[in-house]
């Protein structure tokens, strides 16, 4: 079974982004970019399946500007076998990403596609579900445990009230939650080896997918700020302030 893992290049989770003063977006110049953390978890899970003899090949794919190849290299350095870069400039919405991934999936015929549950920049939490819909495949989002059963999958999902376990008929889509695994770091020898692994260069136009955005971003603004309050000296003062000043007790 081949496993396909879509990986997204995003602003590193440690960076606190700033809104541009003209309201056209957030400041992305000279900001540290990394692989979306949920996608690292997805790559890790695919590698573990391969190491357990359940998967034969792990292919990472990214849609984005030329620099997204760095994100693919990160996946290759972790241990993925090869990469596919689909070049697309500007605003590519989850629906268009899902359409491009569908085309890639039709060419690659994976038995499983593992995505992140959400990208930490746009926080849309859509792409995996959309891809599942377009392919007509089952989906298990927010996975905290994944088991392969022949060509089917048993997946435990993190849901509002606790955990839910479902069975999916393969081929299937799984999106990762934080507790699925702890991704490995790429070792130096593996980073060197990754430089020689193949990356297939494609263009979004190769797939005939319409990338015109359905959503128009009118403006991007700073959220309403919150001011630091006061420090209280002890528990007694805290209780008294909560009671009389804040009125929440």
């Amino acid at each position: 079974m081949k496993v396909l893992v879509p990986v997204k290049r995003v602003v590193d989770f440690n960076v606190k982004v700033r809104v541009k003063s003209d309201g056209t977006g957030v400041e992305l110049a000279n900001v540290k970019m990394s692989m979306n953390p949920f996608d690292e978890i997805a790559v890790e899970e695919a590698l573990r399946l391969k190491e357990a003899g359940k998967a034969t090949e792990v292919v990472v794919v990214s849609i984005g500007p030329a620099q997204a190849s760095e994100t693919i290299r990160t996946g290759l350095a972790m241990g993925a076998d090869r990469g596919i870069l689909v070049k697309a400039e500007g605003h590519v919405e989850p629906l268009a990403v899902a359409k491009l991934l569908k085309a890639v999936a039709e060419a690659e015929k994976p038995g499983l596609i593992i995505l992140g549950k959400q990208a930490i920049d746009d926080d849309s939490n859509q792409t995996g579900q959309m891809l599942a819909a377009l392919l007509g495949w089952p989906q298990a989002t927010f996975a905290s445990k994944l088991e392969v059963e022949g060509s089917d999958f048993k997946v435990t999902r993190e849901v509002d009230g606790g955990l839910q376990t479902v069975k999916l008929k393969g081929p299937a889509i799984v999106t990762t939650d934080l507790r699925l695994n702890e991704p490995r770091y790429a070792s130096l020898p593996n980073i060197m080896k990754a430089k020689k692994k193949p990356i297939d260069d494609k263009n979004a136009s190769d797939y005939g997918v319409d990338l015109t955005p359905h959503l128009e971003v009118l403006k991007t603004a700073e959220p309403a700020g919150r001011k630091a309050g006061v420090k209280v000296k002890d528990v007694a003062e805290l209780v008294s302030k909560l009671k009389t000043e804040a009125g929440v007790l």
Binding site: P94, A221, P223
Partner: peptide, 29 residues
């Protein structure tokens, strides 16, 4: 295209939603 996690309805087709962990608020139509 779904509009995810809106925090305000500006009009029947325009909404506010947080991005980047709420460090920016996008108005989308």
């Amino acid at each position: 295209m779904q509009v995810s996690e809106i925090i305000k309805v500006v009009s029947s087709d325009t909404f506010e939603r947080p991005i980047y962990a709420g460090n920016a608020i996008q108005t989308v139509k």
